[in-house]
Design a protein around this nucleic acid. Structure first.
Length: 569
RNA sequence: CGGGGCGUAGCGCAGCCCGGUAGCGCGCCUGCUUUGGGAGCAGGAUGCCGCAGGUUCAAAUCCUGCCGCCCCGACCA
């Protein structure tokens, strides 16, 4: 492509509303423009990056035995009502109706549609397993879109769905996708890590997220530096404390006047105790019913673990009136003794004795409380957020934290959708069986943004070659000098015929301007055609990443570039 | 939805307190010079000052309402 004819509006100014470097660079490099909140247009340069990623995704999905389909984005309410998600998906599901007042939604994901398709077409075990995928625009009415293309409402996603006859098959399908994902992100030049994850509203038995490591990432990851264990913070298991024989406090429970003392910090300051000696009692509303979660004062409750443990649909910190109902006191003085709620304790309570807790009475706390002796605990469970330095649940070494961008997510769905939507087949014995499903997503735009987040410098983007919108840019230093522009043109033709994605910067601009633009848009190789070197029949090839410059005879340029492209570097 | 901030030329911003000719830098157009890391000189174009009301002789500026955007939080694949 000739630069002079390209629709590639680059900018020097940093847009004021872009926070992330990737977002700023995508705007400055003329890749995206915002249409409205959380909705972006991709310009040619940005769309080429998208297509490069999509192509890699297609190749690896096909290689793993999946087949591409294209499903509707507008979906009827009935399907979602059938799966139950019309009610449970919440406000992220954008709903609307047509002229006949029939209800529809814009697809945020396609489990319902694919399950509907498959249940009508697959009747026997002979037709299983199958894995179908698509690359589609999804719409999720995000509560707060941000970070440009990283978290927007309309976005491109590859989603695949596997259907197997049984658990064993589903496991194999899952592994295949897991391996395909590793190949995909490796080819995209990303440094990433698969982590154990919660499956959220998609549901299912377990899942892994593919995280691109980046300080700007929205997700926190707990990982072990020794073994391979890594998990989303919300999922990371906390090791049960070793069983120690605890003897109850020798003192009886004592009520102490603690006027206005509510938070753990205030309690500790007032009573001169450490947070480790205080039991924090949090009252939650689980589908409207009060549940008391007890945890050691220095720890934080992981609401997702609580939600999963209770198996409820909605979980939130209890509103004031529910707290008053359950404890008989305002917020800040809840305790386990006498509370009218189910009591569940985090494992951190094991081994605690002689502790401080709320008295369920305004302005009073209790001390010398011993769990078990003074109140019953219906269950102990892992309900807290892991902390840096905690032991790894696999090998016992120290856990560290890092941040990541979720670019892919694989779920083992089990029969969540196939059961409710009756995706059944006849087995070898002619008996009806429920298909076992998996689903597998990749955020395409997010992958591109993550790649930029991980590959840039002060001058701009540094594309990994496999996803670079263009691989080579040829820069004649002065287009008004015939020898320079003709040589540049020759090299351009040579590379273009070979199928290289190449830009000829034929603009009548000063060399400095062209160099700055080339750096900003991050083309992996820049071929500079200048008067001094050309006098010897040579040109310079500069690597954007290493900044190394090779001086080569014009005739050797093609071989040099082709080698690099073949090796993907 | 709660808290904070911002809407002025294509982009980045000043002007607003204290009402009276709408400005700066970059970009854009023309000409000349220049030509290996965002050139110099000269000339030029571009604004419902977010929208709608109100106060006033007079509103970018003061008041009210609305809309949009950004940040933090709640929430979320």
């Amino acid at each position: 492509m000739r630069y002079s004819e390209m629709f590639l509006p680059t900018g020097r100014e940093v847009p004021s509303d872009a926070e992330l470097i990737s977002h700023q660079l995508m705007i400055r490099a003329g890749m995206i423009r915002k249409l409205t909140g959380g909705i972006y247009s991709y310009l040619p340069f940005g769309y080429r990056a998208i297509r490069k990623v999509e192509q890699i995704v297609r190749e690896e999905m096909d290689r793993a035995g999946a087949q591409e389909v294209f499903l509707p984005m507008v979906q009827p309410a009935e399907l979602w009502q059938e799966s139950g998600r019309w009610v449970h998906y919440g406000k992220e599901l954008l709903r609307f109706h047509d002229r006949h007042e029939r209800e529809y939604c814009l697809g945020p994901t396609h489990e319902e549609v694919i399950t509907d398709l498959v249940r009508h077409e697959i009747k026997t075990y002979r037709q299983l397993p199958r894995n179908l995928y698509q690359i589609q625009t999804k719409f999720r009415d995000e509560i707060r879109p941000r970070f440009g293309v990283m978290r927007c409402r309309e976005f491109g996603m590859k989603d695949a769905y596997s259907f197997d006859a049984d658990e064993t098959g589903a496991e194999i399908s899952y592994r295949k996708m897991f391996e395909a994902y590793k190949r995909i992100f490796t080819r995209c030049g990303l440094q990433f890590r698969p982590v154990d994850a919660d499956s959220g509203s998609i549901g299912g038995s377990y899942s892994h997220e593919f995280m691109v490591m980046a300080d700007s990432g929205e997700d926190a990851i707990a990982f072990c530096s020794i073994c391979q264990y890594a998990a989303n913070l919300e999922k990371a298991e906390v090791v049960k404390p070793a069983k120690t024989e605890v003897t109850a406090s020798p003192y009886p429970v004592e009520e102490i006047h603690t006027p206005g003392v509510k938070t753990i910090e205030e309690v500790c300051a007032f009573l001169r105790v450490k947070p480790e000696e205080v039991v924090k009692t949090l009252v939650f509303a689980a589908d409207g019913f009060p549940v008391a979660i007890l945890i050691r004062g220095d720890q934080e409750v992981n609401e997702i673990k609580v939600k999963n443990y209770l198996g409820c649909d909605a979980l939130e910190l209890a509103p004031d009136d529910l707290i008053l109902d359950a404890t008989g006191s305002p917020r800040g003085f809840a305790g386990a003794i006498g509370i009218k709620a189910r009591i569940i304790a985090d494992n951190s309570l094991m081994g605690m004795t002689d502790c401080v807790m709320g008295a369920n009475r305004m302005d009073y706390h209790l001390c010398h409380v011993s769990p078990g002796r003074d109140f019953p605990v219906s269950a102990y469970a892992d309900l807290r957020i892991i902390r840096e330095g905690d032991p790894c649940p696999r090998c016992g070494e120290e856990i560290h934290f890092a941040r990541g961008i979720e670019v892919g997510h694989v779920f083992k769905l089990g029969t969540k959708y196939s059961k409710t939507m009756k995706a059944i087949y006849l087995d070898r014995n002619g008996r009806e069986q429920t298909m076992v499903m998996g689903c597998y997503g990749i955020g395409i735009g997010r992958t591109v943004a993550a790649a930029i987040e991980q590959n840039h410098d002060a001058a701009g983007i540094v594309w990994p070659l496999p996803i670079a919108p263009y691989q080579v840019i040829i820069t004649p230093v002065n287009v008004n000098e015939k020898s320079l522009s003709e040589t540049a043109e020759d090299i351009y033709q040579t590379l273009a015929i070979k199928g290289v994605d190449v830009i000829l910067d034929d603009r009548d601009e000063r060399a400095g301007v062209k160099f700055k633009d080339a750096d900003l848009i991050g083309i992996p190789y820049r071929i500079t055609v200048g008067p001094k070197k050309l006098a010897e029949g040579k040109v310079e090839i500069k690597s954007r990443r290493s900044a190394e410059v090779e001086t080569l005879p014009v005739a050797e340029v093609e071989a040099y570039i082709m080698t690099r492209i073949r090796e993907g570097i």
